[in-house]
Design a protein around this nucleic acid. Structure first.
Lengths: 225, 225
DNA sequence: TAGATTGTTAATCGATTAACAATC
DNA sequence: TAGATTGTTAATCGATTAACAATC
């Protein structure tokens, strides 16, 4: 056994975990329109997954569907929320109240999705005291106290590139275990801490490849839809 | 042959393409500090990839390194830029000049990374004429003309969820082939168009799983770093 | 020459797909 | 019963890893 990356008990692969939020979103939409039951074929269509992958993913969460019938929407929502650790709202600390941080704080989907923005911090004294979403901007000096008080394990980093690494280190030292990094830099963190990076350039560069790749090939006829 | 997803000539796998921007970023940093040569071990360390994956990825771009020596930084930058289709700056259209759109427009790394923000569009008449980054906000009525005039194939969608699908359709009809979607909705697009989605909730929910997973297991002792 | 490092091959690992028996 | 749909198995596919020969 070299690297047992799977968690204790939960036998969910990385790709499976990355698809669960998408299922959850589609299920919320279905629930919102009063749908109580859904088939793997329908949910797959809504999320872009294949029906086989979907059934396999869901089978990993327990005996949720009924053969010949489908899946109960509410049960599925509960099971996925539980698997992701979102049964109780997860407190999230946001560092950075600039343009990007403000936009993220205003995101209207935290509560609905098992997340709760519990604090916004910034180093700029002029921003302290201003409203962002449902909270008031605090000084970054209060970082450690805030993370501890909220028992937060998730944080969003929307600070200038030059500050990202040191703020990340303070967050981790205070107890943060999952970091969503919007600064264009590769953070170094200790084992046991997960970083996900969102970088505008990276995303656009990947898209650039795909659009460049799909030039009309040597065969003259363009592919029909 | 069922689904030849690889492009004409360029034999780059999806995971390889998604790693190239990271290499490019590390190389820019190296070049900035005057480094002219780098080994796969060092570049791997900087980007978090394994040296073997890195060499394999780069081998797909041509004969770039020299055995016993390493890779020339400048040559590598050129080769990756070429592979991604960024030798000439790619024009990018941004739709949405609200909080998020404004933050994205202010992103200071477009030019350095082979991208050029060529227009910002919004439906709100009060925003039209305001500066965002290096450009002035135009009416969304000019969407088709703008995309055509710039020959843009990449666009960023930072509009309200309810508007995302219809704006996406207009962009695609005007010639956009790669869409970076910040709205929390699964866009339906025709074949040949690539969508990448950035969703705050999705990212945080994935992080929630990882931090929940890493609870101390049944064995008493916490894992040492 | 000796040491270093790439490019490449073969082995391993893991995920997806297709098919179908179980079961509602 | 007949039709539908899940849960699961086996086959396929693709990526990563480890090792090393080639070569600077």
């Amino acid at each position: 056994m070299t690297d047992p990356r799977r968690g204790p008990g939960t036998g969910l692969s990385r790709p499976t975990v990355s698809r669960l939020p998408g299922y959850l979103r589609a299920l919320s939409s279905l629930a919102g329109s009063g749908t109580v039951r859904v088939s793997s074929a329908e949910l797959a269509r809504l999320t872009g997954a294949s029906p086989a992958v979907l059934r396999r993913d869901l089978a990993g969460l327990g005996q949720l569907g009924r053969r010949g019938v489908g899946y109960p929407v509410a049960t599925l929502q509960q099971a996925i929320s539980q698997a992701l650790g979102l049964v109780e709202d997860q407190p999230v600390v946001l560092v950075g109240a600039g343009h990007l941080g403000s936009a993220l704080a205003g995101y209207a989907g935290f509560e609905d999705r098992g997340l709760r923005l519990c604090a916004v911090l910034d180093a700029d004294p002029r921003l302290i005291g201003q409203r962002r979403g449902a909270v008031v901007v605090q000084s970054i000096d209060e970082l450690e106290d805030t993370v501890t008080a909220a028992a937060a394990r998730l944080a969003i980093l929307a600070v200038p590139t030059g500050a990202a690494q040191s703020v990340a280190e303070r967050l981790v030292a205070a107890g943060i275990r999952g970091l969503l990094n919007f600064a264009p830099v590769d953070l170094a963190v200790p084992a046991g801490v997960t970083v996900r990076a969102v970088d505008l350039s990276t995303e656009l560069q990947i898209l650039a490849f795909h659009q460049a790749e799909l030039r009309p090939g040597p065969t003259g006829a363009p592919p029909s839809p």
